[in-house]
């Protein structure tokens, strides 16, 4: 007896989704690789838009999406499926009053998990941060991506132990090579089966457009925030460069606090310092924090020159 999950994801862009020429180019290239029959892997540091891009590409493919988030605890069973409980059936027959007939029947209940469902019905698999799962859990993907066959346990509800992967099945992966906590190296065999697109931070125009769209601030103010963030990133003083998330956090916080990204406003400087320092320090030592605060103050002054007071 086989059961399967019945919920799938339907991704869609938010109304203020920004698709600049830079994003369009990445999307079209990824779609091209998929049409050629290869899975795509978006690799990049935190805040480079890997997951959003993967969901955007999946949305453009127009198929239902199965989303998996890599996890250290994953095993093949979590991806493929396994036996979860059983069905017990008991029939007590007293049709003839003097005869008692009891029949008991127990059937193990197999449940297909996300990967099996995606392979069976030709859905788009988005495997976010797949390097957080142990490599042996991901071994099952090797035959899926190359031979287009999914190996299943023999006792899978009396069904065949091989499943032919649906021709529409597509896989999108994301990973962060700079992450140090809870990640594993990718197997060479798996990496070799996919097209890896290395993502860097978005170009300035895209970052401004995204910051403006996500916060509702004026373009000039969004531009100023992005310039400060990019300057800190380029300075190489910080342990980690601030990302587009930092710019969005600053812009939205200002919008909520009724502030403006102007050099004359102390609030702008304070919000920039808080958010940039928190984004760029892992441990947060006093010396490092002071250095970044000073840097932020400098760039806020620099990019606010000529503001009307």
């Amino acid at each position: 007896m086989i059961e399967e999950l019945t919920t799938v994801i339907k991704p869609g862009p938010v109304p203020d989704f920004v698709e600049t020429a830079f994003v369009k180019d990445l999307t079209e290239r990824a779609l091209g690789y998929i049409r050629a029959g290869f899975p795509v892997h978006f690799r990049g540091a935190s805040g480079t838009g890997k997951t959003t891009l993967a969901l955007h590409v999946a949305s453009r493919l127009g198929r239902q999406v199965i989303l998996i988030h890599g996890d250290e605890q994953y095993t093949s069973t979590d991806l493929v499926g396994g036996e979860y409980g059983y069905h017990l059936r008991k029939v007590v027959d007293r049709f003839v009053s003097r005869v008692l007939k009891v029949e008991e029947n127990m059937i193990r209940r197999w449940v297909d998990n996300r990967l099996t469902v995606a392979c069976k019905y030709g859905f788009t698999l988005v495997y976010d941060e797949f390097t957080r799962s142990r490599p042996e859990a991901n071994n099952i993907l090797l035959s899926i991506l190359q031979e287009r066959v999914l190996d299943l346990p023999v006792g899978r509800g009396g069904e065949e132990s091989y499943l032919r992967v649906h021709p529409d099945f597509t896989a999108l992966f994301t990973s962060n090579p700079e992450e140090y906590a809870g990640v594993h190296r990718t197997q060479d065999a798996l990496r070799d089966r996919m097209v890896t697109m290395d993502l860097d931070h978005f170009d300035e125009e895209t970052e401004i457009a995204i910051t403006q769209a996500k916060s509702g601030l004026a373009r000039k103010e969004a531009e100023r925030i992005v310039k400060v963030v990019r300057a800190v990133r380029a300075s190489d003083v910080c342990e980690f460069g601030p990302t587009i998330r930092g710019a969005i956090m600053i812009a939205r916080s200002l919008a909520v606090l009724n502030g403006h990204a102007k050099g004359s406003e102390d609030l702008f400087r304070q919000v920039c310092e808080d958010i940039v320092v928190s984004e760029t320090n892992r441990v947060g030592t006093r010396g490092n924090r002071a250095k970044v605060r000073e840097l932020v103050r400098t760039f806020v002054r620099q990019y606010s020159q000529g503001d009307a007071r």
Binding site: I2, T6, T7, V8, I9, K10, P11, G12, P13, V14, F17, T51, T52, L55, H56, S59, Q64, V65, L67, K120, Y121, G122, E159, E160, L163, R164, H166
Partner: peptide
């Protein structure tokens, strides 16, 4: 039905990105 996946109804979960 189990091999090729017939048309069936799925519960969808909208995800905005």
């Amino acid at each position: 039905s189990t091999r090729t996946g017939p048309e069936r109804t799925w519960r969808t979960f909208s995800l905005r990105y």
